[in-house]
Amino acid sequence: MARVVKWALPFVLALGFPFVGQEGYFTHLAITILIFSILASSLNLLMGYTGLVSIAHGAFYGIGAYTSGILVLRHGVPFWAAIVIATAFAGIVALGIGPPSFRTRGIYYIIVTIAFQLIASEIFDNWYSMTGGGLGLKGIPRPEPISLPFLPALGFQSKFVYYYLVLAVAAAVHYGIWRIIRSPLGIALMAIRDNETKALMMGLSPLRYKIGVFVFASALAGLAGSLYAHYLEYAHPDLFSFFVSVDVFLMVMLGGAGTLYGPPLGVLILEMLREVLHEFVALRLLLYGLLLIVIIVFLPEGLPRPLARWTRRLVTPRLLPGSAP
């Protein structure tokens, strides 16, 4: 029973939320959190399960946003096609840079991802004819209404409806990631994370798995970007900058890399912090910097796991020595 409640509660809350939030600020916040949870969980697949620390997720997020925005705005492609193309395109770019970048390891790999992020940011910022540069891409439309049998057509102009679109996508993404982690594929990824040489000896092909998971995670970032651009009806280089990549990275670290529930929790915490410090960008980034150090030094597992251990220790009486299970 408790287990049913534990699983059902988030769903009930998530489904009912817009009835409370209506068209207001909280629904906006919830949409942002859901979109970032796609980003964080897909990065977690890379970082937490395959051991590939990437600071380029913001770049793929931006590639998805700009691709889909430009296609719809300039070429009249319907949103439902554009979001698929944007997702695929982010994946294709990842397929291009994945194989060469995996020749590097450790911090060199991280630095390659940072360099890629900065190059992508510079292109978003300077390719005026395509991206609108520093002015941003304005007037990206919301998705076209879809017609349903026996019901009135479903439009996406309201936050209320857009929320359910994002919720459906986020739920599907998380379900997919969950299935991957629980499958032999997930076990292979974790084997590569824990010891690449050993995985190679077991007959796995680490390079192939790494490329595959990198393409998949980057495509999901592109998907999130498309959802975000058509929600804001706007795209700007600052929304997909190096700091956004660090942001998502921090979300994963804070929630606990390598756990399914962790990254969304990290998103929740950091998005709240972002909203509270909305006016004070420098202060927020200063805190992020300090938080990176504190987490890596004191909480390398993220916040929830140690917290759960401490509370368990407080609740259960200490066992006598020797009687431990």
Partner: peptide, 19 residues
Amino acid sequence: ATEDAMFVSAIGVLIAMEN
């Protein structure tokens, strides 16, 4: 710890000091 961990800490120092 791993170089990755130190690198993350260094990025933290960089962001904190600039801001």
